[in-house]
C-alpha cells in the first residue's frame, strides 16, 4: 500500500516535472518573443514656436557664409539660445549665400544685426552700420590672426618657401583671404605671380581639408580654425599681424531696444564668472571667452594698415 502510494507520488512528480518543463519553456519562449517596448510611445506634439525660442517678436541675426550652414548653426545657435533664454525676443539665424549677401541683408533690413567678417566690415563704404561687439580672445582683447598653415609633413617653413607652390585661401571678402597677397608675400619680397596657383574657397574648413588632402601646399585660415585642426596634422607656419575680431554689426537706425538688449547680453558674459563660464563652455571656441565692445575705428585703422601696404 505504502509502496504503491510512493510509486504514485513518484509518477506524479515526474508528470509535474515534465509539465513544468514544457509549460514553463512555452511561457518563457512566448514572453521572450514579446519584445514590445514597455515604455509609452512618444506622441507629444511640439508647438512650432517652442523650437524657436520663448519670445514672440522675431529678431533675425545674419551670419557671413564663412562656414558651411550646419557648422554655422552649431557654432552660432548656442549664442542665440542664450539670447533667447535671457530676453523677450526670439532671435533667429539667417544665413547668407556670400559675404556680400550678408551685408546686403543687413543694409536692406532683412536682418537686424549680423556677424560679419572683419575684412568685409572694414571694407564697407557705407557708414550706416556700426559694430556692437566682437569675440574676446584668451588675453581679453578682441584681436585675432590669420595663419599660414601646411601639412605637418610639408617642407614649407616660412612664407618665402611658398614660391612655386599652390596656396588655398578662404573668401576674397575675408581678412584671411586677403592678408597673404596684400601683406604676407610682399613682406618677404614675393607676389602672387611667384606662386604656382592661388585659389579661393567659400569656407575656412574647406581650405584646411584641401591642404590636408594635399591638393594645396599651404593655406591661410582664421586662427581659431587653424587651432582646431592642429591634432589632425595641420602645422602653423606664420601669423598675420593682429586683426580685430569679426564684429556683430547692426544698422545705426536699428531698433534701439533690441540693439541695447543684444549688446547688454553679449557684453555681460564674463569668463571669470563660473556661471558664465558654464554657458561659454558649450559655445564654439571662437566665442569661448565671450564678447567685448569694439569701435568702428578699430577696423578702419586695421583696414587702413593693410590697405596702406597694398
Amino acid at each position: 500500500m505504502v509502496a504503491r502510494m510512493k510509486r504514485s507520488l513518484a509518477n506524479l512528480l515526474v508528470l509535474l516535472v515534465v509539465v513544468g518543463l514544457f509549460g514553463g519553456n512555452w511561457l518563457v519562449l512566448r514572453d521572450l518573443q514579446d519584445i514590445h517596448s514597455r515604455d509609452p510611445q512618444p506622441t507629444a506634439t511640439v508647438p512650432a514656436a517652442e523650437s524657436f525660442g520663448s519670445g514672440s517678436e522675431v529678431i533675425r541675426i545674419g551670419v557671413v557664409s564663412r562656414f558651411a550652414p550646419n557648422i554655422i548653426f552649431s557654432g552660432y545657435q548656442p549664442v542665440l539660445d542664450y539670447l533667447n533664454t535671457n530676453s523677450e525676443y526670439r532671435f533667429e539665424l539667417r544665413l547668407s549665400t556670400s559675404y556680400q549677401d550678408a551685408v546686403d541683408k543687413l543694409e536692406q533690413g532683412e536682418v537686424t544685426a549680423s556677424f560679419l567678417g572683419a575684412w568685409i566690415y572694414g571694407h564697407l563704404e557705407s557708414r550706416d552700420l556700426m559694430p556692437l561687439a566682437a569675440p574676446r580672445n584668451a588675453a581679453g582683447s578682441s584681436v585675432f590672426h590669420a595663419v599660414l598653415v601646411t601639412r605637418a609633413d610639408s617642407p614649407v617653413a616660412t612664407v618665402q618657401d611658398l614660391a612655386g607652390l599652390r596656396v588655398a585661401l578662404p573668401s576674397p571678402d575675408s581678412w584671411s583671404g586677403n592678408w597673404l597677397q596684400r601683406r604676407g608675400l610682399p613682406d618677404v619680397g614675393l607676389t602672387t605671380a611667384d606662386l604656382d596657383s592661388l585659389h579661393h574657397f567659400d569656407h575656412h574648413q574647406t581650405v584646411v581639408w584641401e591642404v590636408l588632402r594635399g591638393h594645396f601646399d599651404a593655406g591661410v585660415v582664421k586662427e581659431s580654425v587653424a587651432d582646431r585642426f592642429k591634432r589632425e596634422g595641420l602645422r602653423q607656419v606664420a601669423l598675420s599681424p593682429p586683426i580685430p575680431g569679426a564684429p556683430l554689426v547692426a544698422r545705426r537706425d536699428g531698433p534701439p531696444a533690441v540693439l541695447k538688449t543684444l549688446t547688454r547680453l553679449l557684453l555681460a558674459l564674463n569668463d571669470d564668472d563660473p556661471r558664465d563660464r558654464e554657458i561659454l563652455a558649450g559655445w564654439t571656441p571662437e566665442f569661448a571667452f565671450g564678447f567685448r565692445p569694439v569701435s568702428e575705428a578699430d577696423y578702419t585703422e586695421a583696414f587702413g594698415t593693410l590697405e596702406g601696404e597694398r
Binding site: 514590445h36 517596448s37 515604455d39 510611445q41 512618444p42 506622441t43 507629444a44 506634439t45 511640439v46
Partner: peptide, 16 residues
C-alpha cells in the same frame, strides 16, 4: 502635425 519629440531624448520603441 504628427509626432515630434517634446524633449531632446532619442526614443526607440519596438511594436507589432
Amino acid at each position: 502635425a504628427t509626432r515630434v519629440l517634446a524633449d531632446e531624448t532619442v526614443r526607440t520603441t519596438v511594436t507589432a
